[in-house]
C-alpha cells in the first residue's frame, strides 16, 4: 500500500528537523504514543495505541531513521505488531523550505499490513494514515512553536 502526502509546518526547516529527531518531541506528537525509547543501535522502540475505524489496538514496534541528510531528508523504517495484526513500512521524508519560516514536509512510502487491520481496515487505511500523519504534523508544529523553535 502506497502512502504519500505533504504537510506544511509554520516553522523554519532546521527547527522542524530538530523536532523530528528528538524522541521527546516525537513521543508527544505521535498520536496514541505511549512510549518511545531510544535503543543502543540508534533505533527506537515505540508503544502506540492507534486504530483504523473501529479497530483500535496496542502496537509495539521499532522505528529506525536511516540515511539522514540534515536538514533535508531521511528514510524512516517502521515495523510493528499488535492486537490488530502487523505493519511494516518504509518511506522517505523530505523537508523543503517553501518560504520564510515555512517548511513543507513531503513523505512517500510503502506499507504492508497484515491480520485484522488488513482484512477489515485496508480499504480505510489510506484515509486513516493521512489522518494520523496530519495529526502528527499538527502536533509537531505546536511543539516547534511552544518551544520557541
Amino acid at each position: 500500500m502506497k502512502i504519500e502526502g505533504s504537510y506544511t509546518v509554520q516553522a523554519p526547516r532546521d527547527a522542524v528537523w530538530q523536532r523530528l529527531m528528538d524522541p521527546a518531541s516525537l513521543a508527544r506528537a505521535l498520536p496514541g504514543c505511549e512510549k518511545l525509547e531510544p535503543n543502543a543501535d540508534g533505533s527506537y522502540t515505540a508503544q502506540l495505541n492507534v486504530g483504523v475505524a473501529a479497530i483500535r489496538g496496542n502496537y509495539t514496534g521499532r522505528i529506525e531513521i536511516l540515511d539522514a541528510v540534515r536538514p533535508e531528508q531521511y528514510r524512516l523504517k517502521i515495523s510493528g505488531k499488535g492486537t490488530g495484526g502487523f505493519l511494516n513500512g518504509e518511506g522517505l521524508i523530505m523537508l523543503a523550505e517553501t518560504g520564510p519560516g515555512t517548511t513543507e514536509v513531503r513523505y512517500s512510502g510503502d506499507a504492508q499490513v497484515g491480520g485484522l487491520i488488513a482484512s477489515v481496515g485496508q480499504r480505510l487505511m489510506q484515509a486513516a494514515a493521512r489522518q494520523i500523519v496530519g495529526e502528527f504534523f499538527q502536533a509537531l508544529g505546536r511543539e516547534v512553536q511552544s518551544q520557541g523553535g
Partner: peptide, 14 residues
C-alpha cells in the same frame, strides 16, 4: 486476497 496473501474481504461490509 491481496498479493501478500492478506484477505481483503474480511467482513460482511466487504
Amino acid at each position: 486476497y491481496d498479493e501478500n496473501g492478506q484477505l481483503l474481504t474480511g467482513t460482511l461490509m466487504d
